[in-house]
């Protein structure tokens, strides 16, 4: 289902045979080229593709031409599903999901998407418990990473679907107040994203999203300095890539953790100005991005904790 591509197929085949990029590419192309093909930065020539697949013992003609449109009829609906989830509109998500499932195929990747999507909707609509949700997610991830939980994912090139599942697993742990576990999973996923095959913009968005969650969990664990470092890392990516959707949250988390350190006496009162600045920025950027909920929340926050009224 979804976003497996040529690079994924070569990479996953290679991983399933436990051979390295060096071994596979020898005398066919350079390691750099293979790496670029696997991460989707370059399309392979037909010769190179055939030689690679042949070395791995695969039938080469079958995958000729185009590989990622097997599901093109549901591709757009899947994007709509993710958007509905991200805007907390779970009823709409469920409606879209029903349409997707009507047209869906029966591969492992289809199943993986289905298990995650169905359990996510059910969980968010209060039909299953956090533990049941976690069980389903782990079932889903083990379809493509059978040893999940026993191996490190730090260098595992995650697919879009896998990355989504892992984020959900982390969130589920955090909602059980197991922040340490939630943080560990995200730290690992963050490393894995650098290896993954996703277009750059999507990857950046994922990374910012992870950093935002990390800063939340670190903050709730009382590790405010670490939380601040993480928000700064996220803010930097937002700045470089001009991503605005998670930015108000990051700025707020930054200020929230600074404020905790001030209240604990670790930082002097002078730092309050920085907090105010960050929250004001968050407020105006929320307005600019047209997030009425964030706008309202930040306005009240400024008035309640800093006695400041914004326009």
């Amino acid at each position: 289902m979804g976003r497996y591509r040529l690079g994924d197929i070569i990479r996953m085949t290679r991983k399933s045979l436990s051979i390295t990029q060096e071994q596979l590419s020898e005398d066919i192309c350079s390691v750099e080229t293979l790496s670029r093909i696997e991460t989707g930065k370059q399309n392979p020539s037909r010769d190179v593709y055939e030689l690679l697949m042949e070395r791995m013992g695969r039938i080469r003609e079958r995958a000729y031409s185009i590989l990622s449109v097997s599901d093109f009829k549901v591709l757009e609906k899947m994007q709509a599903f993710e958007e509905a989830i991200q805007s907390y509109d779970f009823q709409r998500a469920e409606k879209i999901l029903k349409e997707i499932l009507k047209k869906q195929g029966d591969t492992n990747l289809d199943k993986q998407f289905k298990i995650r999507a169905v359990s996510l909707v059910n969980y968010r609509l209060g039909r299953i418990s956090t533990d049941e949700f976690l069980d389903e997610l782990q079932k889903a991830i083990r379809l493509t990473i059978p040893k999940y939980g026993n191996i490190s994912l730090k260098n595992w090139p995650l697919t879009y679907n896998e990355a989504n599942i892992i984020l959900n697993i982390s969130t589920a742990y955090a909602e059980k107040n197991e922040y340490q576990k939630a943080v560990e999973i995200l730290e690992e996923a963050y490393g894995a994203l650098n290896q993954s095959y996703m277009d750059v913009e999507l990857r950046n968005t994922f990374q910012v999203f992870i950093l935002n969650n990390l800063s939340k969990w670190y903050g709730l664990m009382g590790n405010h300095q670490k939380a601040i470092d993480v928000t700064l890392q996220g803010i930097k990516i937002c700045k470089e890539c001009k991503i605005g959707n998670v930015l108000p949250n990051l700025l707020y988390n930054y200020a929230w953790n600074k404020r905790r350190l001030i209240d604990e006496g670790v930082l002097s009162q002078e730092y309050k100005r920085e907090c105010i600045r960050a929250i004001k920025q968050a407020y105006y950027i929320s307005c600019a991005m047209q997030y009425p909920y964030g706008e309202q929340f930040l306005k009240q926050h400024l008035s309640k904790y800093y006695n400041i009224n914004v326009i």
Binding site: R62, I66, V69, F72, K73, L109
Partner: peptide
């Protein structure tokens, strides 16, 4: 799993026609 994907292989022309 790899095999599954290969069997489902589609042609780009089908995609163009579908979207068009």
């Amino acid at each position: 799993m790899i095999r599954d994907m290969e069997v489902q292989n589609n042609n780009i022309g089908t995609a163009i026609q579908y979207f068009r």
